[in-house]
Design a protein around this nucleic acid. Structure first.
Lengths: 189, 189
DNA sequence: GGTAGACAAACGAACGTTCGTTTGGTACGG
DNA sequence: CCGTACCAAACGAACGTTCGTTTGTCTACC
């Protein structure tokens, strides 16, 4: 086992925070996971809170990158929505610890950081919102639906996946993407 | 200020757990909320974990009662689904601390309790599942949808409400019920 | 090419604080 | 006057963090 970098620490912290929560993780626990003492972590970072910030920021970045990749390609609203759904699920399953920590541990951040992260989350939600609005404007989505709420509903379905998805389960990732896409499009049209 | 009962303690614990989480709540914090010392709580309950169990059980009971009330009335699947949605939202907003604790703090329970609670949750999910299956059988819901997943999606939308609903916001409770119902029925038909 | 210096990573012990919990005493309502 | 809700004090353990020191590795210079 070679020596660790700051990134190693952040990745390990993500795993712990995702499983046991911020308050449920001690620096000694984390150290044990990494094969060093809890105190040795302070060679890499300033404190526990700073660790959480780093993990949550990584999570947010993953989602934002996925969304901007999708939005960069011109496409009809339906296809854009499929891309957003697939991208979100991809991050959720490929970057599970960071994604889960980002989704569930935000209110362990102190006030300023929490506000900043929530703004990032609002921006990300905006990608879903504008896609729905575009669909309504183009007449492919129904008009009698509040796009603000619809965006929340879609993200609610997506985010909950992290709680029930089983890697060894009967459903492949693409099957889930397809099923969720069909459900969402059914609701929007 | 009169003396407290065990129920007072459990209610107070629900509020704390819902806001700060199980690990983020200390017995002294809780005591301060209740106007007594943290140690005095042990006159009413055996320990912190027992408190969490009590709160979570209350939450589960609220949901179960709401569901069984709806299922007791014979009605077409669409109306039954509306009832389940309205009932779920009612519990979520009227019993917010217990509901939130039930939804977010289950994995702070030790293994046996967690298993028991998860079984109760599966049963509750079954109410949504059977309603969807009934709708498919009667031909009012579309067939090309996995009812197991659909039930999860509906509950995902409902449960997320607890995270974004603002009592002083622009939306009344019945408006939200109506909007969610329309979204769900749109997806299922 | 070998050695001395620099630097970061990790240790191990201790800091003060807070945690959940226990104990023993006190006051008050039925 | 009994029972219990509560207090006051204390327990040991665990917490996040700091400290001085050791270890290992890379680099610069002879």
């Amino acid at each position: 086992m070679s020596r660790l970098t700051r990134d190693d620490i952040v990745v390990g912290a993500g795993r712990r925070f995702a499983t046991y929560g911020y308050h449920g993780t001690s620096m000694r626990d984390l150290g044990e996971d990494l094969g060093i003492l809890g105190s040795s972590i302070y060679s890499h970072i300033g404190g526990k809170q700073e660790l959480l910030v780093a993990v949550v920021e990584r999570g947010a970045a993953f989602f934002e990158e996925a969304a901007s990749t999708v939005l960069a390609i011109e496409a009809p609203p339906e296809e854009q929505m499929r891309g957003l759904i697939a991208g979100h699920i991809g991050v959720l399953l490929d970057q599970r610890p960071e994604a889960r920590t980002y989704l569930t541990q935000v209110d362990c951040l102190d006030k300023d950081e929490a506000e900043r992260i929530n703004k990032m989350r609002d921006e990300y939600e905006g990608a879903f919102y504008s896609t729905i609005v575009a669909g309504i404007d183009e007449g492919v989505f129904r008009e009698d639906c509040d796009p603000r709420l619809a965006a929340i509903y879609v993200l609610s379905i997506l985010n909950a996946l992290e709680r029930w998805y089983d890697e060894q389960g009967r459903l492949s990732r693409s099957e889930i993407v397809e099923d969720m896409y069909r459900f969402v499009i059914g609701a929007l049209t």
